[in-house]
Design a protein around this nucleic acid. Structure first.
Lengths: 209, 209, 209, 209
DNA sequence: CATGAATGAGGGTTCATTCAT
DNA sequence: AATGAATGAACCCTCATTCAT
């Protein structure tokens, strides 16, 4: 009768739901207090479940943070992917507009939930493997941006001599920077000015013509 | 004879020296194993002192990491300040060359001691206050870069319509990005390409003329 | 039709059957991993039943081990009893042969299922009450052996001056020793030599005539 | 000034003393409540030390029981070794007397401190490795007894056709049996009768001449 | 009646911090 | 002043047991 059973029984759905809730609670705890300051008991208490219950859903503390981070990355990638259509435009004007849309989408993710960047930073300090994942996350965005650049070069509205990969990394660096700035001053004004400045640098550079 | 030690007794000098050594040892430990994985005993052992002695020089674990980070920031600021002469040049050509020098200097700091960025990341995860300090560190570089931009605008070789502050932040974002990339692939080739790409974007943008 | 199931409904028979299966599964688990290392879940998993079901048949973990041990003791006693016919023989020759048969029967019980002695040892470590039961088990064998001795004395082929009870205990001690030796080296050769040595000591002693 | 400094400083002596005390306290706890029922906190509480202190002296719970057992075995071996002089006698009479002395010495060890056999049994149930050690302990006594037998055969007062090793094991089995009996009824009368019965069986066997 | 999700007491272990020597 | 032995709060994790479905 239920519309989207997806082949899962009621218990299985309930179980998946609890997993989700634990991930969300853990997300909040880790973001608010940091990984090390968060006890399994804190996560359980936030949900009103016994802390033993936690271990029915996740193997250990490391396991949950892994899932929280994976989940977070998935959300970011989904948000980026939603706007991802490198070959949708064919003029510089249209491209600039697209850039602005993508930037806004990203800004929204992080501004909407300020715990996100906090968690990312907190996670990077957990251990070597986690730091590596965070760096990977940053590098994962390189091909996304690179695809836009490649398309632009092919279409002829971007410079033919671009060294695509490092250029993409530079652009993503600017976005990362705006994220950090946004953590201290999340005002829309600041974000708007930053966003405009990034586009100005990105498309025209700072040299006087 | 040295200015700083003037007026300090021999004991006081010895004490300052030990503090220095503890900070250095802690720096190494924190960078190598991370803040939480490092025990006071590890720091003391590295110096060959009793771990009780540590507490005669620093109030607690939080205290030492504070000093380690302050020390690290000082070193970075010093390195940046050494090359800091926004008004030394008056043509775009000279400015580009200066940018390259500054970039190289910065790259050297972090490449020379790869534990530095690791420590910064590790530190950002300690607690809210520490994360704030890390963000502050990033913002601290804004006026430095902004000074160059201002000078360039005044001299006429940079665009007159630059929104100085966010533009400086964007440029610093690119530098930060190159740092992260450098943590995974510290090869000089990669750094050189990135450095070149940053300058290309920065001065000319990516639009086809 | 069978005597034991007479008067039991089908459900009751099924219930008894499940109890039997749980005891057997528990026996295997306890013997293989030891009492403390065995979880209720292990026992249930081995049977493919839910571990909640376990508690419908036994009150708790202590309860099941009690039953496992009782069951084990019953099997040992049955095996001993089967060969038990102290008054079947009337000459030393026949008695020696009978001893050998009994020894073989016992050896077979333990060699057949090497988990038995392991379980007995494991059980003895559970708590005071269990240790007591294990000691009782050993003492329970005293009258069995004593019966043979008494008969032999009465028949005249054993020494008249035997202090029956402690003598029986001594003989049983030799059997216990052979059991322990058999746990580390269960080879038939070793068992055969031990068995022969026990009989040699037992009947003739070690003194040169 | 102190007579037996043995090259140890005062702190080192104090440390060794504390180790001793912990081993003793653990011995008592393990023997009284069993290994699993004993918490590190119990051991520490018995000594009036913090339970964290325990870990300055022993790596973990397994480590302490290892030391307790080793210590116990050492004491047993020392007691056996003290009376160990297989070639001190040359007649059956003297040998019987020696056997009685050894038996008494052994009985005294275990009667004196009834926790000893309890601990041995408890230990055997800890895990496979421990059970193995307990079996080894029993086998360790084989060569001791075997040495006496060999000497007796060589001197001519024991039967020439003894299969030394299994015979030694049989004799040790009788001793083990008397130990178990002694755990339930430690009265000297019982021990005396058992001891006499063992010697009677051992030297003369039970056959009527 | 069977199930297994939920529970929380309990225990081992770590380590920052204190303080007597 | 230096030391390191002692401490116990804190935390992760297990598993026997309960009970709603």
């Amino acid at each position: 009768m239920t519309a989207v059973t997806d082949g899962l029984s009621r218990v299985e759905r309930r179980k998946a739901e609890t997993r989700r809730e634990i991930i969300d609670a853990a997300f909040t705890c880790f973001a608010e207090q940091g990984y090390h300051a968060t006890g399994i008991a804190d996560i359980a208490a936030r949900l009103g479940i016994g802390h033993g219950t936690f271990y029915r859903y996740f193997a250990n503390k490391r396991d949950i943070v892994e899932h929280v981070i994976t989940d977070l990355i998935d959300r970011i990638v989904a948000a980026l992917g939603a706007e991802n259509a490198p070959d949708a435009v064919s003029t510089l004007e249209a491209y600039r507009a697209q850039t602005e849309r993508i930037g806004n989408a990203l800004a929204q993710i992080f501004t909407e939930d300020p715990r996100m960047p906090q968690l990312l930073i907190s996670a990077a300090g957990i251990d070597d493997a986690m730091r590596e994942r965070m760096l990977e996350l940053f590098e994962m965005t390189t091909p996304l941006t690179a695809a836009y650049l490649e398309h632009g070069v092919r279409e002829g509205y971007l410079r033919a001599d671009l060294d695509i990969e490092p250029t993409a990394q530079s652009i993503n660096g600017m976005i990362l920077g705006s994220l950090l700035v946004g953590m201290r001053d999340p005002s829309p004004q600041r974000q708007a000015r930053l966003s405009a400045a990034i586009r100005a640098v990105m498309y025209d550079g700072i040299s006087r013509r």
